[in-house]
């Protein structure tokens, strides 16, 4: 406990970095997955390749990816952008299928109704299809959030700061309290973000009486 009170600043900084790297990645993964998943839904012929292809992104081992990315982007080895990009790719891998499932779940009756009412193009996408696909997208997003927050720690191995830094540092210096703090905060952060998503879902989708 002593270690925690003496190193509050280090802990808060690690937590801050962790949030600053994982939240943009989660948002970027969502923004990229929506068009990809929608395409998979609209083009049944290509839906297999799009979903499987993006899912395979998850098979890329994380350390090599973090080493190759800076070479491709020209950013420094310890630049946070490497982690954000890597986490975004993993997020896309998990989310495209949920997005496609979400759009596919809209009943043909509802689609016909929207057409008959005179919805057109983008407005129909934004105000009918996206909200109706949202509950299933949210389920996927919760998995992505947990996985992103967990994976974000990997950057610490290469010296990119995050809660993972507390494990690597604690491991090197044999401080159990530091390792435990890292683990507990990572789990806690994941739990809080998940709870936030559930609350957000309830607020944005009041027609859904049971968001699990």
């Amino acid at each position: 406990m002593n270690w925690v009170t003496n190193n509050l600043e280090t802990i808060i900084s690690a937590l801050g970095w962790h949030v600053a790297l994982s939240v943009p990645a989660i948002v970027a993964a969502l923004l990229c997955s929506i068009p990809l998943g929608w395409l998979a839904h609209r083009l049944p012929r290509y839906s297999g390749p799009i979903i499987t292809g993006s899912g395979l992104l998850f098979a890329i081992p994380s350390l090599p990816l973090l080493i190759v990315l800076p070479v491709l982007t020209g950013a420094g080895m310890r630049d946070g952008s490497n982690v954000v990009i890597a986490l975004t790719l993993y997020g896309i891998a998990l989310l495209v299928r949920s997005v496609a499932d979400g759009f596919n779940s809209i009943s043909s009756e509802t689609r016909l109704a929207a057409t008959a009412l005179g919805y057109s193009g983008f407005r129909r996408f934004l105000t009918v299809e996206l909200p109706l696909a949202a509950p299933i997208i949210l389920t996927g997003l919760r998995v992505v959030t947990a996985s992103t927050i967990a994976l974000c720690t990997v950057g610490a191995v290469l010296g990119i700061p995050s809660l993972g830094t507390l494990f690597t540092d604690g491991f090197q210096r044999q401080i159990l309290a530091e390792i435990m703090t890292g683990i507990i905060l990572t789990l806690g952060l994941a739990g809080i973000c998940d709870a936030l998503l559930v609350v957000l879902g309830k607020l944005l989708m009041p027609w859904q009486k049971q968001v699990a």
Binding site: E109, T110, A113, A114, V128, L132, W207
Partner: peptide, 11 residues
């Protein structure tokens, strides 16, 4: 246009 099962937008 009225559909057989009303076709209300569920959201």
């Amino acid at each position: 246009y009225v559909m057989q099962h009303a076709g209300l937008l569920p959201h």
